[in-house]
Amino acid sequence: MLRISDFSWHTRHLDLLEVPAGECVVVTGPSGAGKSRLLRAVADLEPSTGLVEAFGAVRDETPAPAWRLQVSYLAATPGWWADTVAPHLTDLAAAAPLFDALGLAADCTTWQVSRLSSGERQRLALVRNLLLEPRVLLLDEPTASLDAETEAAAEQLIRDRLESGACALLVTHDGAQSTRLATRAVVLDAGETRVATL
């Protein structure tokens, strides 16, 4: 379970959020409300205060690199640090079935990053995070650049991870995707942060 309590980030405060294994909670609100920053703060990529626990591990008592292997943030615009795809992936053999599921060619590991489309980047970034097998997925608009068919494939991969014991926080502007993947939402309204049922 992911448990966030008495949590302050950016200009926001959340009293309590518990996300049990198998559940995905969406984060909604207008642009600039702090949705991405909530995910980044939970991953400890930016300063915040409060208690964050994931499957028994307390964030502030866990070395940050070890925490992020378990609580993995996928940015809306993922970054790349090498010229080709392969150096970004920890296990090429384990990546092969994920490529297949997301409609990526088997030889995509040799592709130049600079020539990837935004949809290819988004899929490869999802693969990159899933290869770490994190217990908590922090997904920031992970399918915004995908067509309907690939979006469905990506959602199925996320569902598979939830069924195998992970949980997720998902930022999305797609209301239909929210109801497909989640039954609860963290709503960031003007001046108010609350947990609501969809």
């Binding site: 993922p78 790349w80 995070n129």
Partner: peptide, 11 residues
């Protein structure tokens, strides 16, 4: 920044 943060986010 995006490349550095991607690596940090991946542990």
């Amino acid at each position: 920044q995006a490349a550095v943060e991607a690596r940090l986010a991946l542990g």
